[in-house]
Nucleic acid binder design. Sequence first.
DNA 1: AATGCAGTTTCACTATGTGGAACTTCTATG
DNA 2: CATAGAAGTTCCACATAGTGAAACTGCATT
Lengths: 262, 262
Amino acid sequence: MNTAAPRSGDGTIGKALEVLDLVAQAERPVRFSELLTLSPHPKATLYRLVQTLTNLGMLRYDVDRQTYAPGLRLVSLAHAAWRQSSLAPIARPHIDRLSETLGETVHLAQLDGGQVLYVDKRNAADPIEMFSQAGKVGPGYCTGVGKAMIAFLGDDAREMALSQQAWFAHTANTHTDRDSLSAELEVIRAEGVAYDREEHEPGIICVAAPILSETGRAIGALSVTTSTARKSLADLTRLAPHLKSTAREIAQATANWQFPSQ
Amino acid sequence: MNTAAPRSGDGTIGKALEVLDLVAQAERPVRFSELLTLSPHPKATLYRLVQTLTNLGMLRYDVDRQTYAPGLRLVSLAHAAWRQSSLAPIARPHIDRLSETLGETVHLAQLDGGQVLYVDKRNAADPIEMFSQAGKVGPGYCTGVGKAMIAFLGDDAREMALSQQAWFAHTANTHTDRDSLSAELEVIRAEGVAYDREEHEPGIICVAAPILSETGRAIGALSVTTSTARKSLADLTRLAPHLKSTAREIAQATANWQFPSQ
DNA sequence: AATGCAGTTTCACTATGTGGAACTTCTATG
DNA sequence: CATAGAAGTTCCACATAGTGAAACTGCATT
């Protein structure tokens, strides 16, 4: 088996996925010419790729507007991925309970290519939401769940993850290089909890606890997010024990069934 | 732009997606050798495809168990697809209201390659947890939502859809050929509602209304599903007007924004 | 030690995908 | 209403990228 994960350059299939990503990241239907400016490929090549993807149902082409959007076939594929590769199905009852106890919205995230992928969320007020939030991605280096997970990776995986960060200063508190973050990761490892101190968005704070495998590696993370208007960091500290115990419950539940560490 | 949608045979990318589908359909982590028996490709070719997909994050490889599962990258791609290409974000408030009014579980579905794709569901208080969730796919020819949508397709699209059905007799009531179904489609077009009379699962019945574009083509469908133990078909008939009016509301909401007919 | 099975690598071959350029719409503009 | 320009589509000589038979490497099992 191959070791690294370059995530691009893998032949034709890689190119096709780059295009798919481009369309997905656009967040709205795009015209062919827009894609052309965004992609490194010559016109004819891009054209064929887009055609193939459309034929395969991975892109949807709107004839009237002449635009491309991600196709619904992805949704059904993702369903399988979500059920098999995410902690969500197993974690769901535990998250329900936690969300109810705390009266706060709880997020469940996993690491994918150095980025945080939210795989489920439980809104205290409004139950059962699916992909509305699940599927969303965020940065690893400046979110509570991201830091919680990176702190508890194996050395190689952590190096990998650190090298994949953008280190963009979203706020004055954002870690903007690996040394700065690495120092905090030590603390997170010691405490078993990570805080987001308005590092991603001003006014937004969060506590997060990693979900650990038997070998002590992060396989996911839980978080409670709130705004400085509603709660303080001290308040969140009080929630930490609940988070940690729920994380431990989930870890146990997964150990009984299956699940690979990164 | 190409017209038809053969959904396979599209070069290397098509092959890669076939493999991805295979893994997704397995519903559990699969070994390489299992894939080998399922796929028409020779060992080496399959091996490379699987490697490429793994590198790209579309598959996840579990080193310990030597198994492949759909990768989480799909979940984030699907998020974009769900937001842009599904009716769910627009329809959500209307479905909420309907589900609350009726006190029943409401499903929202769209047609994708002749199959029904459930893009959202709203579970009322009393959850009959059964066969459906966002991302789940079902047959077109023997579900309420499927028949409601197929009835209101354009001629070409309907022919296409009919040719893509499996016509498997799930129950004694299942339509097993296009003539049988076509007759019912006439009725559905006249009434504007479709019923599933235990055609997919014994004991499960449903009413469905299509969501129509300005040109009268189906862009999705709504349904209320229940069991014969709880309700009769006559009961469902009484719900039909609510379904139809909600479907019309959603159609209006989409018209104001965007949306292509099939 | 011998057999068999699952997974991986090699390598000559050629099918597949490439991309520059030419062609066709369509839309904006003088 | 002619004309320029941009956006989308097709063509085709070329070589990269993918193919698959066969050989190889572990690792169980007998």
